[in-house]
Design a protein around this nucleic acid. Sequence first.
DNA 1: GTCTATAATAGGATAGAC
DNA 2: GTCTATCCTATTATAGAC
Lengths: 214, 214
Amino acid sequence: MDNAGRQASPSFDRRRRRHLQTREEILDAALEVMSEEGVAALNLTEVARRVGLRQPSLYQYFDSKTAVYDALFSRGMRQHTAALRDAASAAGGGLAALRAAMIATVRFSVDNPVLSQLLFTRAVPGFTPSAEAYRPSLEAQELLQSELATAVQRNELHPEADSERGRGLLIALAAGVSSLQDANDPGAAFDDGRFTPLIEPALEMYASYFAPDR
Amino acid sequence: MDNAGRQASPSFDRRRRRHLQTREEILDAALEVMSEEGVAALNLTEVARRVGLRQPSLYQYFDSKTAVYDALFSRGMRQHTAALRDAASAAGGGLAALRAAMIATVRFSVDNPVLSQLLFTRAVPGFTPSAEAYRPSLEAQELLQSELATAVQRNELHPEADSERGRGLLIALAAGVSSLQDANDPGAAFDDGRFTPLIEPALEMYASYFAPDR
DNA sequence: GTCTATAATAGGATAGAC
DNA sequence: GTCTATCCTATTATAGAC
């Protein structure tokens, strides 16, 4: 191959690292712009300005505006899945992990409202995520399902909790609290939100509805 | 006044009715376009084409694109409030009315996803509804609160249900089910939705959590 | 890899004839 | 009240020099 030697050289690695770093900066700037102008109103000229480039130079990093959205989607899904996984594993599995995961999800949604719109709603007209970008969300689903099974096995929840209905209700609670917060107290962080504390009684309500002895 | 005589004449009334009717047709077409292209991607040229007019003629009916959004918002809020009010009064007040109102809200959201995005989220960048357009939603809030009070008085719900926390949880349930449906099974009507049936156990969960004897 | 210049398009809004 | 014509601006994307 032509570039076999170049791939092995340290300068090539440095260049590639720099390239990837600039890509990240572009994505960060894109999120900023979307925060200010709206998810659907991503403006590449403004993004370029913020990273200190001219607009055509962005095409060295992304093939199109849609590619920027897709990279944001992919990175966002990975971040969300990681947050969920970390919270669940720190809580030690089972019902405690489910609680922690749902709280982490609300926190993520509220602290990243723009990204959440991109990830969880159809806010951007032409955009459909690629299969690769969508994949991390499958891991998150599996993780949730596995913790539900654990909670049932540990006799922390009724077996009915580990059904499509039970899973749906759990997710609906997190989605509901997030959207309530976003609609009625936008801009507030998770820890300052007027509605985010509702996730606690919501999970309590869920746990008592699916109590093991029912 | 100059037009005192004209206002009294039947032809003036006819003309005014026709004008208002065309306004409605424009709003309907706008919703159609938004359904296909995205809430934020309202395109006045396309709207004009669908109602059989040229784009500049729309300015006889609305001063600007924002005015179209505002009229949609106003009409949508009135429709939602009416649906909620009708459902509640048909159910006879109290807990039954609350259930009916929440189901009506989910139905409205799922059957009008685009309109719901405009009403309940910040999907359209530059747009903020006028105070007048926003008013009907206050009536809906009062109605909900009054039925909560009734349900407590009738000993159908624990007094704690009629608190900010209780109200928040109730609304979060409806919002959660709606957003779950929209995100995971978009396009389906309320009666065919894979997730809309969750509103029933959700309300059951709510009622048992706020059972009067707890 | 970044730039200038520019193409290509789209879409909101206004002027003025009929 | 509707039209044609047009303006104006914004913004994605490409060509080609350095």
